[in-house]
Design a protein around this nucleic acid. Structure first.
Length: 378
RNA sequence: GGGCGGUUCGCAUAGCGGCAAUUGCAUCAGACUGUAAAUCUGACGUCUUCGGACUACGGGGGUUCGAGUCCCUCACCGCCCA
C-alpha cells in the first residue's frame, strides 16, 4: 500500500492534489487538520468533526503523556479507541512545547513574530522547558513535576498513543532567536531526527521529519536538504517564518524536499497563509486558530473575521454568514450567538467552533477543487 | 416620636487624615498561527503642547498645612423600637 500519492499537479502553481493512505482511512490533500490537543476537538464530538468533513485530526504527545498518560491510553487500546475517532490521527511530538513552554513563555511570543511585541520582551516567568543536547526537561504546567523528553521517549510515547502519522522530536525555534542560536538549535534538531529514525520500532506508523532553520535562507536550505535526504515518510516544516515571510521560507525549503512525499506546514492557520502555502506545494496543515478564535467569540467568514461580542449584534437577526450552510448559520442568528457569548453559555463556543471549522473545511474543499480544475487558487 | 446604619467614577464594592481614590461586573478597543488559551492585554471624571491642569466621594458649613475620611447641620434611603 502506497502511503502517499500525488493524484494531480496544478497547472498554474506547485500545488498538488494528493492522497494519504493510512490504516485508519484516507486523507485527501491539501487538507486541514483540526487540533485535538488533549484528545478532544474542544467542544465538538468526533461525529461532528466527521460531519464537518474532516478526515483526520492532530493530537498532542506532551499533553496526553501528562494526562491521562500514554500508558493508560495504550492500556485502553490506542488514541483512536480512547477518543472514539476512527479516522487518521497525527500526533505532534512535543517539539512545539519545547518552544511554547520555553522561550515562547519567557519572551511572551508566539511562533509567528507579531511586530508589536518585539519591543517588550521582558518575560519574568520561569521557563517550563529547559533544553540540552540530549533532550528537554519540562516542568509540568499542571503540577510542577519534572519530565524528561528525548527523541527516543517522544517516539515511544507516540507509539503508545498509536497515531497513524507521528513527528520527530524537534525544537520549534523562537522567532527571536539569532542566527547562531538558530543554527545550533537546527543542528540539534537534525541529530534528534536521526535518533528518532533509529528509535522507531513500529512499522504501521509513518514518521515525519521536521525542517527548521528559522528566518535564515541558508539554514532553511541546509535543514531541508539534511532532513529531506533522510528516509522519512513525509516532512513537517516548522519553526518561525516571520510575519509575511512565510512564502519566502517555503520557496527556500520545498525544492529540497522529495516531491513524492507529503509536506505538512506545522501550525499554520490563516486563510491567506494556507492558500499561499498550497500554491508552493504544501499538502497538510493543522492550526488552533479556527477553534480558538471560535471560543473567543470570533467568527470566520468569506468577508473576514469579526467578533460577535460587539454590541452592534445584540439585535442582529442575520446569520453569521448568509452564504454559509453550516448548522449554526442555518439555525441561529447573530443576536442569539451574541447573547450566548455574553452570558458565557458553552453552547456559544460549540456553535462558533462548528461554524469556523465548517468554514475552513469548505475552504479546503474549494482549494482541492481549484487544483483539480486548474483554476487559480484563492 | 426614639435608636442605629447608610449615601464613593453606569451598577456593586473598598477606603478609618496625604487620594483622581480599591476591587468585581458592565462598557469600549486590541490580540490570538504544531493550544499552559471557554484565554489574555489595554482604556474606562474632563481637558492636555503628555509636564501637567481642572473638577470630583448626597447638599451646606466647620476643624486642619491637608478632609471621601473628623465635627455640626440639612436632605434622602434602610433596619429596629414605640
Amino acid at each position: 500500500m502506497e502511503f502517499f500519492k500525488v493524484l494531480k499537479k496544478h497547472k498554474h502553481s506547485k500545488a498538488r492534489l494528493g492522497l494519504i493512505k493510512t490504516a485508519h482511512g484516507n486523507i485527501h490533500t491539501p487538507a486541514f487538520l483540526p487540533v485535538a490537543t488533549k484528545a478532544a476537538i474542544k467542544s465538538l464530538s468526533p461525529e461532528e468533526i466527521k460531519k464537518i468533513g474532516f478526515e483526520a485530526i492532530l493530537s498532542n504527545t506532551y499533553h496526553l503523556y501528562l494526562q491521562p498518560g500514554s500508558k493508560i491510553i495504550k492500556k485502553l487500546g490506542d488514541l483512536h479507541k480512547f477518543m472514539n475517532w476512527p479516522g487518521p490521527i497525527i500526533t505532534d511530538s512535543g517539539g512545539f512545547q519545547v518552544f511554547s513552554l520555553g522561550f515562547g513563555l519567557k519572551d511572551k511570543v508566539g511562533k509567528i513574530l507579531n511586530k508589536n511585541i518585539q519591543e517588550e520582551q521582558v518575560g519574568q516567568q520561569a521557563k517550563l522547558a529547559r533544553i540540552d543536547q540530549a533532550g528537554v526537561t519540562f516542568t509540568s504546567h499542571l503540577d510542577g513535576s519534572h519530565h524528561r523528553f528525548t527523541p527516543e521517549s517522544s517516539i515511544k510515547i507516540q507509539e503508545d498513543l498509536g497515531a497513524d502519522i507521528i513527528f520527530v522530536f524537534d525544537e520549534c525555534t523562537s522567532p527571536l532567536a539569532n542566527y547562531d542560536y538558530t543554527q545550533k538549535s537546527m543542528e540539534r534538531t537534525h541529530q534528534w531526527a536521526q535518533r528518532c529514525l533509529k528509535a522507531k520500532k513500529r512499522n504501521k506508523q509513518a514518521l515525519f521529519g521536521i525542517v527548521q532553520g528559522g528566518l535564515f535562507k541558508d539554514l532553511r536550505q541546509a535543514s531541508a536538504k539534511f532532513i529531506g535526504d533522510l528516509p522519512f515518510d513525509g516532512f513537517g516544516i516548522g519553526g518561525s517564518f516571520g510575519k509575511g515571510e512565510m512564502k519566502k521560507a517555503l520557496d527556500w525549503v520545498i525544492p529540497y524536499l522529495p516531491s513524492n512525499k507529503p509536506r505538512h506546514l506545522l501550525g499554520i492557520g490563516y486563510l491567506d497563509d494556507i492558500k499561499e502555502a498550497v500554491k508552493r506545494g504544501i499538502d497538510l496543515f493543522d492550526c488552533v486558530q479556527p477553534t480558538r478564535l471560535a471560543r473567543h467569540g470570533t467568527f470566520l467568514t468569506a468577508q473576514g473575521k469579526f467578533s460577535i461580542l460587539k454590541s452592534v449584534y445584540q439585535t442582529d437577526k442575520k446569520p453569521i454568514s448568509k452564504n454559509c450552510s453550516c448548522d449554526t448559520c442555518q439555525n441561529f442568528n447573530r443576536a442569539y450567538l451574541h447573547h450566548l457569548f455574553k452570558t458565557k453559555e458553552i453552547l456559544g463556543a460549540r456553535l462558533a467552533t462548528f461554524h469556523n471549522l465548517w468554514f475552513i473545511s469548505r475552504f479546503m474543499e474549494k482549494i482541492r477543487r481549484d487544483i483539480k480544475e486548474d483554476k487559480n487558487i484563492g
